[in-house]
Design a protein around this nucleic acid. Structure first.
Lengths: 163, 163
DNA sequence: GAATTCGTACTCGGATAGTGCTTGTCCGAGTCCAGCCGG
DNA sequence: CCGGCTGGACTCGGACAAGCACTATCCGAGTACGAATTC
């Protein structure tokens, strides 16, 4: 039971955009240079985040992506939903229904029992993830209330000038 | 983030063995006839459960598998561990470390922050799963304290005689 | 000053690896049972 | 008649390899926007 690599990238992207100076979009090229990996796969992730309402895209020259909401208003569950869909760990293939179908006709009850357990467990998982905002993560990282802002475009540019 | 099909089968197998009359092993052939699916894949699952100490195997004629512990002493987390390994949803591919490596050298802190969040969420998920025993599931199913026992071997035999 | 061209950046679709789950096949090892054999 | 041996039948155990689904990656064409160019 692993989250996808794409989710980790998505979370990282949101964290980057949260430390980006207000009003300046970060291009996907800059994000790709920072994170590494596939540029085109990154585009798919960005698209999901846009559709999910977490980030905005700006077309045209010196365009890119900006955070759609305040870091305090974005939690990790939203990132999860945007990239991976609903939280549903138990794949009901109907094994219980099939096994207990001739057992006092309790197939439905058995299936409901196990399904409910995992539904409850998922709720607890999702609730915790949902209580953690991007701001919380950054506070934990920087140890200060004031999150420092930078322009990632410049950082990448400086990097590339060195080489 | 889905559990594997194999896990659902494993849980179902344990439930079957928990309703099996004491002392009589259930053969893998009978289990396969009840659950359907691949017989060979079933063997692998059974093996994992044996290695995990959840069930015992009996060789020889009229052999099979029996529950190694009381239903009240087997929880779903054990089934999970036996079939899927440790609970670890967040795949740390080091994107955070890479992204924040030139950001006030807080790469480790950022990585630890996000990793910790998911570790906490996983703990809550695992704790709930771990608090649910096979007995609880069966109580929920049968609505009675006394779990009815049957001999699955006979049930399958009767089924096959019909056809 | 208005239309055209051009470059940058996002958008979309499909094609191609890579990984892990699922399934199938084969042979070996352990156990039980029935029947044979010798006493 | 009785005990032990022996072969067959049944079961689990483990090593391979093939199929499949999903993730991840790559490639190319299309669209929108702003800026420079041109008339």
């Amino acid at each position: 039971m692993h989250l996808t690599k794409g989710f980790e990238q998505a979370a990282c992207i949101v964290a980057m955009l949260a430390t980006q100076e207000k009003g300046i979009p970060v291009s996907s090229g800059v994000i790709n240079a920072t994170l590494g990996g596939s540029a085109t796969y990154l585009h798919k992730i960005m698209r999901k985040l846009v559709v999910g309402g977490l980030i905005n895209s700006v077309s045209g020259n010196s365009g890119g992506f900006t955070l759609a909401k305040e870091p305090a208003e974005i939690n990790l569950l939203e990132v999860y939903h945007a990239t991976e869909g609903p939280v549903d760990t138990f794949p009901d293939n109907g094994f219980f229904k099939r096994a207990f179908k001739d057992f006092a006709s309790l197939a439905t009850e058995a299936d409901a029992a196990i399904t409910n357990v995992f539904h409850q467990a998922d709720s607890r998982w999702a609730a915790y993830i949902g209580s953690m905002t991007v701001q919380d993560i950054l506070w934990e990282t920087f140890k200060v209330q004031e999150i420092p802002l930078v322009d990632w475009n410049e950082i990448v540019q400086e990097q590339q000038n060195k080489n």
